[in-house]
Design a binder for these strands. Structure first.
Lengths: 374, 374
DNA sequence: TTGTACGCGTTATCAT
DNA sequence: ATGATAACGCGTACAA
């Protein structure tokens, strides 16, 4: 499998398109009328160099000349052409955010956090959804690189994808991983899932639950590793053995939550509590619990992560591990900006966002009849 | 290993244009030596012109030469520099989507629809959140224009904002309005809220509700106008008078839904049904209903728009007017692409996305004791 | 069919 | 402090 770097222009209006498209007009590609620095210079009675010096805040410009140039700039409504600036090496002030699907509230909140941080500095944010397809991840990173993105935020599907690692290295711009980690010296931002899941598990154990199911996704991702570590740590501290059959970490999808919950609740020794770690999992888990005729928290206790409107408003309200995706996106963007501007020394940095345990009404001590069967 | 010829302050090049903007110092950068069309030409033993013709699919190139050039392209990993292309008038293949806040699922779904349509054609999507501030709308449109966006999708706060109208006209690129309409000859895409609200209202009237509240936002926007029209039409057809005090159309915010519902349920002749038209309103409305000690549908019937996971999963499940924001975003992007490529004749086009009435358990005939009081 | 040369608008260098 | 001018990399008339 080779990476195709050839240039495609499927929609060139002047050339033959892929469809029987006979464009009504065969327009000249030339941008015809636009005011240039030369026009401004003429208007102000100076040279183009001076115009450039003025707008770039060069210290060597007379106040009087600056005023004249600024007046001309305003009068003509001129602004430097970004393409021409690009040719001179001026950064595009654009960063990309690559993730699976913006419709996931987790990502839309991250994006907003990133966008807020970036727009303060005059940066644009390009969103790039991969639908979880690794080849799309690679293609989008390459596209953004070619389009001169100054850096990228990355939440990939598979942390060990070799093609991805190579692509990231080839792009000479900084990256910041979000809720993921690569085997490269790259900054990363993520929530403290270890502690979050530890708290949730410890709480359930303190209620005397012995069989606690953990449903999550991304078995090979940092997030899942941290959650499993927190889950295991709590069990170890409580002296309770972990039953591997209660750990389901293959997908964040709603359907997965539904299916695995059905399976779990159908087990002969079924779990008395479930930790649903994944924003989209919860509705699937809830539906399966409902379908099995179970009542929360009487028949099964439930803890969700992340906290959502659904968890808060449903009856009973669901106890949750909360963290702030907006803050994660914001911190990631700020770190990326620091890298872009070389404000910090080399060396990968890990930024951790705290988790918070929100106690609600979805947990109770396990029902003895169920717990002691077999 | 890093190219670090820059040794000034944390850089921040002008990019400001005419507007006074803080820019610490001028840049001193040089893009690292990159492979150019000239290198490819040399490698292939042809001239730069031929290289350009090959990658631009010019018909006048020998197959043999094309092969040789393509091989050189692949070998050197060359791709045309976008800035240089930009200077020659090649479009940037980038569009902007301006809206209030991506965290609103309505917009994140629209964005995904738009992105899917755009990425198929090799376009990038820049997201631009305004937080509902009109001056941000103007600033972002100007920014995107300067950055050579080929077109923009727009969901503005105030359809009558004069500064906005002027900015849109000044930008010489095509726009497509989403769920909004301007007094300009511009394409628009929106859901059929008139019919959706008509169906919801007619259904409630058929259950013999006489006092139906309508909560929504954007009093001066197309969406609100359409909803009010549908609401009124159903009342007229049923011969039921509309009580203006039951129509609350000032905001889409959750808090507004909460507050207005409290007020409505506190009225001496309180409504027996509520139509909550706005994705974020629902949770506020529900919370107020719960706080007032009312039960759905016994004490108050409820219909939501748009349909959401919350509406579907809460007990009782909420009857809803559903439409597809993803489809709206996609249609808007496709229409914008048609405009960008001049594939359709001039003249504004309105694209309507259908609504669907989802019957669930949140509506019943009004309680007589409540309805007949006073 | 292919090579050559010009120009797009800006920034940086070198003179003045 | 300011003017003049050389790149930057590509697309495309025009020449061959």
């Amino acid at each position: 499998m080779h990476i195709d770097t050839t240039v495609k222009k499927p929609e060139s209006p002047s050339a033959a398109g892929p469809a029987p498209e006979k464009a009504p007009t065969a327009p000249r590609r030339r941008r015809s009328k636009s005011v240039t620095a030369n026009d401004v210079a003429q208007e102000a009675g100076v040279s183009v160099g001076t115009v450039s010096r003025v707008v770039n805040h060069a210290p060597t410009v007379t106040h009087e000349v600056r005023e004249r140039v600024m007046a001309a700039v305003k009068k003509l409504g001129w602004a430097p052409d970004v393409s021409a600036q690009g040719m001179r090496g001026v950064p595009a002030r654009m960063v990309g955010f690559v993730f699976s699907d913006i419709r996931n509230p987790l990502y839309s909140h991250m994006v907003k956090g990133a966008e807020d941080a970036l727009s303060e500095k005059g940066y644009m944010l390009v969103v790039a959804s991969t639908d979880g397809r690794p080849e799309r991840e690679v293609a989008l990173i390459q596209l953004l690189t070619r389009r001169r993105a100054d850096g990228m935020l990355l939440t990939v599907q598979e942390e060990t994808n070799a093609a991805l690692l190579q692509t990231v290295q080839l792009a000479k711009v900084p990256f910041v991983m979000v809720e993921r980690e690569l085997a490269l010296p790259i900054d990363s931002v993520g929530a403290d899932h270890l502690n979050g899941t530890y708290q949730a598990t410890a709480y359930l154990l303190s209620l005397r639950h012995q069989r606690i199911a953990l449903i999550s996704g991304g078995r090979n991702n940092r997030v899942a590793r941290d959650r499993l570590a927190g889950y295991t740590k709590a069990h170890t501290e409580a002296g309770v053995a972990v039953d591997p059959s209660l750990v389901r970490m293959d997908s964040f999808a709603t359907e997965y939550g539904f299916r695995e919950t059905q399976i779990l609740l159908g087990m002969p020794q079924r779990p008395t509590a479930i930790i649903s770690s994944g924003q989209r999992l919860l509705s699937g888990v809830l539906e399966a619990i409902r379908m099995k005729g179970c009542e929360i928290p009487r028949d099964v206790s439930l803890i969700a992560s992340n906290d959502t409107e659904l968890a808060r408003l449903i009856t009973p309200a669901i106890t949750a591990v909360r963290y702030d995706p907006y803050a994660m996106g914001r911190e990631a963007a700020l770190q990326l900006l620091r890298r872009i501007n070389h404000e910090i020394p080399e060396g990968a940095i890990r930024i951790e966002v705290p988790t918070e345990f929100i106690l609600r009404d979805s947990c109770a001590a396990p029902c003895v009849k169920e717990g002691s069967r077999a």
